[in-house]
Amino acid sequence: MTESKELQAKAKHEVATAGEQTRPGPVFTPEVDIFETDEELTLLADMPGVTADDVAIDLNDGVLTLSGDVKPLEGPGETDVLVEFETGRYHRQFALSDAIDQDKIDAKLEDGVLRLTLPKARKAVSRQIAVKAG
């Protein structure tokens, strides 16, 4: 790919989360890239405005939940002139098919992008058992 394309305008994807919202305000679905190698699964999520303290990652029964809070951007005394995007919570869930080594999950947040590395658990079947001669 030599010639890069022109980015197109699009609205943020707002979700209607019935029942699970405990606070008022819009909830958005972060855009993600998910890819895997033989050893690990990596997830990249665009969560602009989220700080490391405000992101929550939960893996429970093979369901990965990402959420993040964005504090209001405007300072006191500012009034709106043009509004094309809103900010609020980010929330998204994924069902993982592979067993993940929970102790080795690594999360990094840089420039508003969350990078989550999920190492796959070693499967017991792949272990070689040497039979000793008696």
Binding site: L7, A11, D80, L82, V83, E84, F85
Partner: peptide, 16 residues
């Protein structure tokens, strides 16, 4: 305040 508008181009912009 102002109404939420569709962004006209990338990136979406807020002005206050």
């Amino acid at each position: 305040g102002a109404r939420l508008m569709m962004p006209k181009a990338f990136p979406a912009i807020n002005i206050t």
